[in-house]
Computed example of a mutant assay.
Amino acid sequence: MEKYLGESIPQLGFGLMRLPMNGEKVDIEQTKKMADIFLEKGFCYFDTAFGYLNGESEKSVKEVLVDRYPRDKFVLATKLPAWAGAKTKEEAEQMFYTSLERTGAGYFDFYLLHNLGEQRTHFFDDYDLWNFCAKRKEEGLIKHFGFSFHDKADVLDEILNKHPEVEFVQLQINYADWDNPTIESRKCYEVARKHNKPVVIMEPVKGGILANPPQKVTDVLKAADKDASPSSWAIRFAASLDGIITVLSGMSNVEQMEDNVSYMEDFKPLSEDEAKVVDEAREIINAIPTVPCTACTYCMKGCPESVAIYGTFQAVNIVNIYDDVEAAKGRYKWNTEGHGWAKASACIECGQCEEVCPQHIHIREELKKAAAILEG
């Protein structure tokens, strides 16, 4: 008998957000090979969402899994993003049925309200999607109901107090963000544990960034185990936590799949010595100079141009730490356009933000630097 929901699920999950592509379509043949390897090695959890790859991710589930394997051979999760274009309760509810139609799965083993936090949560309340999902669960169309989350720990605590009926949560957890004040991986994990909610982990490799970490980090990891990939350290760190359903890895090719299953097939939690290696890697990352923003948002509350100040600094710090401009631009687009906030170049230099910044950041100067890097 399971001590908690998902305890018996293998601790590597296949995230279907970064699938191999042929133009705007999923490379179905390569994805089939990846899924076959994954299932042959004893893994089973596949994670998609209504909006991944403009719906192509969910459609690929039908061709890759539903049409080729018995339904009880895999566990399928998908998500409903009510904030992404749904103007009415009916439109939001239709996302669920569209997902059912696209995948042909018949039911979802794990169903999530997608990306709660910040200004997005109210959509799920406004459209009463909590009760909608509860009814679909009664009908057998949903086996287990939860939500994914991107915000601070106190917000997570508030939502879980309000909705104790959810069975699990999906959180961004990786060793680099463990004590990051803007992401609060550790604190969010601790809130979930306090509420006895098992956790699905997303972004264990931080969107692929930790597959190619700063050279000093790579040197430390290779010194500890010359044969282990940087990704393996990141995924094993996440999978070593207690109360985990699975750790999602967004794999994009057969080689990544083969690497991941090689060390997760016979998963062993980090040893005490290995945990110290990860601690050292984190200390190196934390010591790299960054914009010292803690995402308190005081600066944004009075900004006349609604500039995404802390979202900009979060993105530019990806460049500062990992020297990955493309990843930073992707985060920047999401933190600005994706949230309805203005870009750094919209700043009119009124200085109001600097008057209230507890960290005394020269915000206007930093925004100029960020705009030059991220908007070029």
Rank of each mutant, 00 (worst) to 15 (best):
E2L: 00
K3H: 12
L5M: 10
S8M: 08
G13P: 13
N22A: 12
L39F: 09
F46W: 01
G51A: 14
Y52H: 08
L53D: 07
E56R: 02
S60A: 15
K62D: 05
L65Q: 06
D67H: 09
Y69A: 07
P70R: 08
R71P: 03
D72P: 03
K73Y: 11
P81S: 05
A82C: 11
A92M: 02
Q94S: 11
E101H: 12
R102V: 03
Y111H: 04
H114Q: 03
E118Y: 14
E118C: 06
T121E: 03
D125N: 09
K137P: 06
E138K: 11
E139N: 08
L141A: 02
G146L: 01
A153V: 13
V155E: 02
D157C: 10
E165H: 06
F168N: 02
F168V: 05
Q170P: 05
N174D: 01
A176D: 09
W178T: 03
R186F: 08
Y189A: 04
P213V: 04
P214H: 07
Q215F: 07
V220L: 15
A224P: 04
D225E: 09
K226M: 11
S240C: 10
V247G: 00
E258R: 12
E258K: 15
K268T: 12
V278E: 09
A281E: 07
E283H: 12
A287T: 09
C296S: 04
M300V: 09
P304S: 08
V307D: 01
Y310I: 10
I321N: 07
W334N: 11
N335E: 13
E337W: 13
C347R: 01
Q352S: 09
C353M: 05
E365D: 14
E366H: 06
